[in-house]
Design a binder for these strands. Structure first.
Length: 556
RNA sequence: GUCCCAGUAGCUCAGCUGGAUAGAGCAAUAGCCUUCUAAGCUAUCGGUCGGGCGUUCGAAUCGCUCCUGGGACGCCA
């Protein structure tokens, strides 16, 4: 149980009781009590705006209501030192100095588990992300989605949701046929034969490499074979090759999946046919101009969508509908998709399909990840200098390191475009926020080592009441908020909150570090209390960084 | 033309279900290392919250409208 939640609950309970005792409102008329944490310290530890909200019901000016509430509040019950009424009718609560006395003990007890809550009530959430076509490397846009998705899943896990991470492999359809034909051409070329690349083919170096590999391994074995057979083999070979590279990059980036779902399997299991039949039975399908259409306008889409093209093949949408049907049938409470900004136009039609299949759109979520703009020397980098194409995740990781890439990709709300400043990410200076946070952790580690050398054991016997300075109280409060912050980040699907939280915590730590000395042999009792505080901060920073997938170094 | 995202300090961004004098970082300026890592800290400077109208006791936040930037509008995936 989180001590801050308990503290707040008691205060809220007191407010409700007071309102009822003062006959200001019926129980049903009382809105849910909100306690804010005022920015201004002179406004107390918590502030309630309930008096303003009750102005109508109670037919009284807010300040008068506040007075009546305050009269009835039992301060002893809720650990309150004093209460003030301020401004238009805010009720400001000043807590007793030791109201957060349990926080450090809780953190030291829970260690790696500090931050976990059951807020998610074990709800089953599935997050599908990255899902890059196996026809090339991961580039920056994908990488932001990868970092976002991974951290979001970590946040869900910590907040008590049951999470599954899935990658949808587009191993069917047009683009994979093009891959096979491209490989075929490169194979023939590697054997010294004339062969033209298809117009929509994949011209990357890697495909040339695949062609060479095949030529070396199989010589001209595949030249005379039946073309269908050859393409099927090349398709599979290319798929495994490309997927292997993607997996390697993701592995290096610290991203893993519970499940790799094959689009092809939807064809093999007749899932697509099944889906089409279901839509047809419900009357959402019609023929026109030789194609088969989905009546998505029935569910608010701009126009109806083609499911089966005139040539008999499916559009991208068709297997994707079957895929979503399959996901929902697996019993998840929510199915979350993480898509790039260029896919936002796709949301409505998928949402329409979900409804047509009879599911609530509440079970279907999409997070659109806005573009990444890369900057170097103050200028926008459009292409990789090495490859002349979009900058690959691999290049960026090699350049600035995984920690920096993950930090930068999760530091902003996903619906803002992101400027990624390579020079900043590379720099080992005070401007770089990654180092700022890691440095805070390393500083504590050094302190704790030295404390131990001087004979201070990191024990659980310490007197919290000796932590009285403003800087110490700031740290305590911020530490106490960690579990609630995680639960909120999960609820809002906003992993960047963790990044901002840990930055703030590091900031409080650095500020404290400069103001107070932890190890003071003249004052053993204070030293013990501060060591415990430092240990608690260290654990919390490490836990936050673990959620972000960023290392917490002992030394820097 | 329709839809989505954004518009807050010189720059990059926070601002939670509306709340008290709008916050950080960078940049600029001035300080702090005989004391646990100066990859740090402290202070100062800096804002008609894109414009207008409306709802409200109260609007950066909600609604309408206009303007600007980016993206999407395929029988591509």
């Amino acid at each position: 149980m989180n001590t801050l939640v308990e503290v707040e609950e008691k205060v809220k309970q007191e407010i409700i009781t007071a309102i009822l005792e003062a006959n200001l409102a019926e129980e049903a008329q009382i809105p849910s009590i909100v306690l804010e944490k005022p920015k201004e310290k002179s406004h107390g530890d918590f502030a309630a705006n309930i008096a303003m909200q009750l102005a109508r019901v109670a037919k009284m000016p807010p300040r008068k209501i506040a007075e009546k509430i305050v009269e009835k509040i039992n301060t002893e019950q809720a650990n309150i030192e004093s209460i003030e009424i301020a401004g238009p009718g805010f009720i400001n609560f000043f807590m007793k100095q030791d109201f957060l006395s349990n926080v450090i003990g809780t953190i030291l007890d829970q260690e790696k588990n500090y931050g976990k809550t059951d807020a998610g009530k074990n709800k089953r959430v599935q997050v599908e992300f990255v899902s890059v076509n196996p026809t090339g490397d991961l580039h920056l846009g994908h990488a932001r989605g990868a970092a976002f998705g991974d951290v979001l899943c970590n946040v869900f896990e910590t907040a008590g949701y049951d999470v599954e991470r899935e990658y949808y492999i587009n191993d069917a359809g047009n683009q994979i046929d093009q891959l096979a034909v491209s490989i075929e051409a490169r194979y023939f070329q590697a054997l010294g034969k004339e062969s033209d690349m298809p117009e929509d083919g994949y011209y990357g170096e890697d495909i040339i490499e695949v062609g060479k590999q095949l030529a070396e391994q199989y010589k001209d074995e595949w030249v005379e074979k039946d073309r269908e057979e050859r393409l099927a083999f090349f398709r599979d070979y290319g798929l495994q090759y490309e997927l292997g590279k993607i997996k390697q990059d993701l592995d290096a980036f610290g991203v893993y999946f519970d499940n790799w779902f094959s689009e092809m399997s939807l064809y093999k299991n007749d899932k697509i046919k099944e889906t089409l039949e279901q839509l047809d039975q419900k009357g959402y399908i019609y023929e026109d101009e030789g194609a088969t259409w989905f009546r998505s306008t029935d569910f608010g889409d701009d126009k109806d969508r083609v499911l089966i093209k005139r040539d008999g093949s499916y559009t991208y949408l068709t297997p994707d509908i079957a895929y979503h049907k399959d996901k929902l049938e697996r019993g998840f409470d929510k199915v979350i998709n993480i898509w790039g900004a260029d896919h936002h136009g796709y949301v409505n039609r998928m949402s329409a399909a979900i409804q047509a299949l009879g599911y609530s759109t509440e079970k279907f979520g999409v997070n659109i990840i806005q573009l990444v703009n890369l900057f170097e020397n103050g200028e926008k980098v459009r292409m990789s200098k090495r490859t002349g194409k979009a900058v690959a995740l691999r290049e960026l990781m090699d350049d600035v390191g995984v920690d920096a890439v993950r930090y930068f990709f999760t530091m902003r709300s996903s619906d803002s475009q992101l400027d990624f400043d390579i020079d900043l990410a590379r720099s080992k200076s005070n401007e770089n926020p990654v180092f700022y946070v890691q440095y805070a952790h390393a500083r504590i580690c050094t302190m704790l080592v030295q404390a131990e050398e001087k004979g201070f054991n990191i024990q659980k016997e310490f007197d919290v009441s000796l932590l009285t300075t403003d800087k110490e109280m700031d740290l305590l409060k911020h530490l106490a908020e960690f579990p609630q912050m995680i639960a909120e980040a999960a609820k809002r699907e906003a992993p960047y909150r963790v990044t901002q939280y840990v930055y703030d915590l590091a900031s409080y730590l650095h500020s404290f570090y400069n103001a107070e000395k932890v190890i003071d042999e003249q004052n053993e009792a204070v030293t013990k209390a501060r060591i415990a505080l430092m240990k608690a901060v260290q654990i919390t920073i490490a836990n936050a960084l673990r959620i972000l997938g960023i290392s917490a170094p002992q030394k820097m």
